[in-house]
Design a protein around this nucleic acid. Sequence first.
DNA 1: ATCGTTGTTGCGACTGAGTTGCAACACGAA
DNA 2: TTCGTGTTGCAACTCAGTCGCAACAACGAT
Lengths: 148, 148
Amino acid sequence: MPFPETEIPGRLQALLAQRGIRMTDQRRAILSVIETANKHLDASQLLRKAQKLDPSVDRSTVYRTLGLLKRQGMIDELDLMHLNGEGHYYERKLGRDHIHMACLRCGKITEFVSERFESLKSQMEQECRFHILVARLEVGGYCTACRR
Amino acid sequence: MPFPETEIPGRLQALLAQRGIRMTDQRRAILSVIETANKHLDASQLLRKAQKLDPSVDRSTVYRTLGLLKRQGMIDELDLMHLNGEGHYYERKLGRDHIHMACLRCGKITEFVSERFESLKSQMEQECRFHILVARLEVGGYCTACRR
DNA sequence: ATCGTTGTTGCGACTGAGTTGCAACACGAA
DNA sequence: TTCGTGTTGCAACTCAGTCGCAACAACGAT
Ligand SMILES: [Mn+2]
Ligand SMILES: [Mn+2]
Ligand SMILES: [Zn+2]
Ligand SMILES: [Zn+2]
């Protein structure tokens, strides 16, 4: 089963500069947290980690930066079946979309890349004449370990 | 392009009775609103419509009933790309899953049923050994009318 | 190197979704 | 009718996310 590729560090900062977007210490801290994260982070986790790099980072700056990155198509926003509360999760958007499977018992998140997903998106674009900018497939159920 | 089937009225109430779940006037009102809705409703819209049938319905009862219906697998919870605020949307769960496409410009929601989606879910269940209980595919982009 | 424009920030107050504890209530089986 | 237990309205609460504003800082122009 194929998995998504990993991140080249410093890439987000370069991309923003390339698009003429102003860089600040606070943004650098937040970008660095997103790029080095080894799991899906919500806004408050992101805030705490960013404040370790730059204590001046404020909650509102985190949300404003997430908004910027979403508009630029550099991150994806996830629900992960709202396993813990109502908040959202964020992750670096890489070349290929991937699917998220959330185990409703142990909370484990599994990622999955599939050619059939790409094929389905093509079908939607053609048959519905819809121009897809963001596609989010999230699944809830039981992982291998949790189903009896 | 195939569309999802429509609802048999009174079905939700019968299903709950069948499972030995207590029925109340408030629940009847909420179920009736869900079954007769012609679009995806959020919790506050659901509350207002239910109160027209039974003015005693409270906000917390709406959320408690939505929780019950989710646990019973009778409704699906949607984000619809959070087009208006942060709230969620709800709809009766029918035999076949369908995909939601949200136009980021005009807000139009398009529904779509695809055999490729079914095929993709089968692949996930087999290759990841994951038992799927709920699958949600939501797409944001531009509809036919809105893309130039 | 300095300046000035303009985008960005922290702060604090705010909104709005969703939750919870509790006492009153009502469903439905006996 | 009675009774146990599930459900409700209410009000107070939590928590995510937003917003207006004055201070500030990035960075291209000078
Ligand atoms: Mn959501
Ligand atoms: Mn739908
Ligand atoms: Zn599990
Ligand atoms: Zn449109």
